[in-house]
Simulated assay, not measured.
Amino acid sequence: MGEHTRKVGDRGQVTIPKELRDRRGIEGGDEIEFVELDDKILLKPPTDTERLAEGYRKRADRSRRLTEEMEETSSEATERLGDAPDWSE
């Protein structure tokens, strides 16, 4: 976290630094929520259902790719080493 200073324009407008917009996924046209907390004003992008769903889709894709990689690695190990021994008695 760092501090960023911006000047407020005559009409109350402030530009959110690009670094923060990029890191938080804020794009032109997005709505920003203003939250007053003690002596601070917090800005936060509201969590909309589409953004949340996109995050879940990305996580599912990563999990699917990891599963495929593990299955491939497991198959390669079985080909080279044979089936795992049966340890049950």
Score class of each variant (00 low, 15 high):
Met1Thr: 03
Met1Tyr: 02
Met1Arg: 02
Gly2Pro: 05
Glu3Ala: 08
His4Gln: 02
Thr5Arg: 13
Arg6Lys: 14
Lys7His: 08
Lys7Glu: 12
Gly9Asp: 08
Gly9Met: 03
Gly12Gln: 14
Lys18Asp: 04
Arg21Trp: 09
Asp22Met: 10
Asp22Val: 13
Arg23Glu: 13
Arg23Met: 08
Arg24Ile: 08
Ile26Ala: 10
Gly29Lys: 13
Gly29Phe: 15
Glu31Leu: 09
Glu31Gln: 09
Glu31Thr: 05
Glu31Met: 09
Glu33Gly: 00
Glu33Leu: 03
Phe34Pro: 01
Phe34Gln: 06
Val35Arg: 02
Glu36Cys: 02
Leu37Thr: 13
Ile41Gln: 00
Ile41Gly: 00
Ile41Asn: 00
Leu42Met: 12
Lys44Gln: 11
Lys44His: 10
Lys44Asn: 07
Pro45Asn: 03
Pro46His: 06
Asp48Arg: 10
Glu50Cys: 05
Arg51Thr: 15
Leu52Gln: 15
Leu52Met: 15
Leu52Asp: 11
Glu54Ser: 10
Glu54Cys: 06
Gly55Asn: 02
Tyr56Gln: 07
Tyr56Met: 07
Arg57Met: 13
Ala60Thr: 14
Asp61Asn: 11
Asp61Cys: 07
Ser63Phe: 07
Arg64Val: 09
Arg65Tyr: 15
Leu66Asp: 14
Thr67His: 03
Thr67Phe: 00
Glu68Lys: 06
Glu68Ile: 01
Glu69His: 05
Glu71Asp: 08
Ser75Glu: 06
Glu76Trp: 01
Ala77Glu: 09
Ala77Met: 14
Thr78Asn: 00
Glu79Lys: 10
Glu79Asp: 15
Arg80Thr: 03
Arg80Val: 03
Leu81Gly: 00
Gly82Ser: 08
Asp83Glu: 09
Asp86Gln: 05
Asp86Leu: 08
Asp86Ala: 09
Trp87Thr: 09
Glu89Arg: 09
Glu89Lys: 11
